[in-house]
C-alpha cells in the first residue's frame, strides 16, 4: 500500500491520510489527479525522504510501500 499524507489547506481533498493500492508505473501525478487536487495548489512533494520541485516530483514513480507528503505553499519562521 502507498500512504499519502496531506497537510493544511489541501486536507480538504482527502483528510490527513489516504491509502492507495500499488500499481505498476504509478506516478505521483496519477495519485494527485485521483485525489482531484489542482497541481497549482501543491508546492512541496516529499516521496520516500526525497524532495525536489513539484514538476520533477510529479513524474516520479512510486514503490509498493511508498510514503508521499503533499503540502500547499507555506512559510513561517
Amino acid at each position: 500500500m502507498i500512504t499519502v499524507k496531506l497537510y493544511s489547506a489541501i486536507r480538504k481533498y482527502g483528510g490527513k491520510e489516504v491509502m492507495f493500492e500499488y500499481k505498476k508505473n504509478l506516478r505521483v501525478r496519477d495519485i494527485v489527479e485521483e485525489l482531484k487536487i489542482p497541481i497549482k495548489e501543491i508546492s512541496i512533494i516529499i516521496l520516500d525522504h526525497f524532495d525536489s520541485t513539484p514538476d520533477i516530483m510529479l513524474d516520479h514513480e512510486v514503490k509498493e510501500s511508498s510514503l508521499i507528503h503533499l503540502f500547499p505553499p507555506m512559510a513561517g519562521g
Binding site: 497537510y7 493544511s8 512541496i44 507528503h69 503540502f71 507555506m74 512559510a75 513561517g76 519562521g77
Partner: peptide, 9 residues
C-alpha cells in the same frame, strides 16, 4: 495556520 504550519513540513 500561523507560523506553526511549518511543524509538519
Amino acid at each position: 495556520y500561523g507560523t506553526a504550519v511549518l511543524v509538519n513540513v
